[in-house]
């Protein structure tokens, strides 16, 4: 695999938490418009991987390159967000005391998000339309003025996905989107993510194997901070090491 045309390129990345290596010489390449699913047992470093990409955690060593040649290490979260990386957190992270509409309005991609621009500007007609479309996509068009805190769990997850979509990122990082969702919500979320992957690169972290089978094209398996296997779902599931450390362990747990 070459890094030509990749949207995110991680090379030999190590994150060290006081001696515990959350990521250990990890290498990962994701292409433009790819939907990549990252799986792995608890503590494998999945969330840390996203933290590194979006600037929440600074690695001890290694390179993180966004797009052609933008080095992400040392940049602040909001600067990385402005470059075009959006993140959906594991627990719904929304603004509970703002309305659904205000949540989306704040997230919308704008030229300036500095204090003076936000004090002065009013939403334009185009922006109203963009927000309305997003409301439609995430199934909340009947509730624009409800406080986000009063939404159901699944609706909050969608609202956050909507907020990330409106940032119009080149790369979307999604952490366990279907945790706590009903089967129907899970299925709809899968369709939503697949639709997003048409236009954006998406990295999804997931535990739910059934959901992984529904959406995945390429799966990356992490274990103890490093990639141990990568490929189509079938190949990954057939891999002996993966069965041993991840699927096998799960099987034992379920029987």
């Amino acid at each position: 695999m070459s890094n030509k045309g990749s949207i995110i390129y991680l090379e030999e990345v190590t994150v060290d938490y006081d001696g515990f290596k959350a990521l250990n010489n990890l290498n990962l390449i994701v292409e433009y418009n790819e939907l990549r699913v990252v799986i792995g047992p608890n503590g494998a470093g999945k969330t840390t991987l996203l933290d590194v990409i979006c600037g929440k955690t600074t690695p001890a060593s290694g390179r993180v390159i966004f797009g052609k040649d933008i080095n992400l290490i040392g940049k602040r979260e909001d600067q990385i967000s402005a470059l075009g990386i959006g993140r959906k957190f594991q627990a719904p992270s929304i603004y509970a005391n703002l309305t659904v509409w205000e949540n989306l309005d704040l997230s919308l991609k704008r030229e300036s998000k500095g204090i003076f621009a936000t004090l002065m500007s009013k939403p334009t007609a185009t922006e109203y339309r963009t927000i309305d479309e997003a409301l439609e996509t995430i199934g909340l068009k009947d509730h624009p003025h409800r406080l986000a805190g009063s939404l159901s769990h699944g609706q909050k997850q969608w609202l956050e996905i909507g907020m990330v979509i409106l940032q119009d990122p080149l790369l979307l990082l999604v952490d366990e989107p279907v945790a706590g969702m009903t089967d129907k919500e899970t299925e709809q979320t899968g369709l939503l993510l697949q639709a997003l992957a048409e236009k954006h690169a998406v990295i999804v972290i997931e535990h739910d194997m059934e959901f992984v089978r529904q959406i995945a094209r390429t799966v990356t398996v992490l274990h103890e901070g490093a990639v141990i296997c990568e490929g189509p779902v079938e190949k990954v599931q057939a891999d002996d090491r993966v069965r041993e450390i991840y699927l096998g362990r799960q099987k034992v747990a379920y029987t």
Partner: peptide, 23 residues
């Protein structure tokens, strides 16, 4: 103003404010 909404947003979830692109 929208800045006022950002203030409330900081109270609700400062982490998300970063990822919405505000400092």
């Amino acid at each position: 103003s929208r800045a006022g909404k950002v203030l409330v947003a900081i109270r609700d979830s400062e982490q998300r404010v970063f990822f919405s692109g505000y400092s």
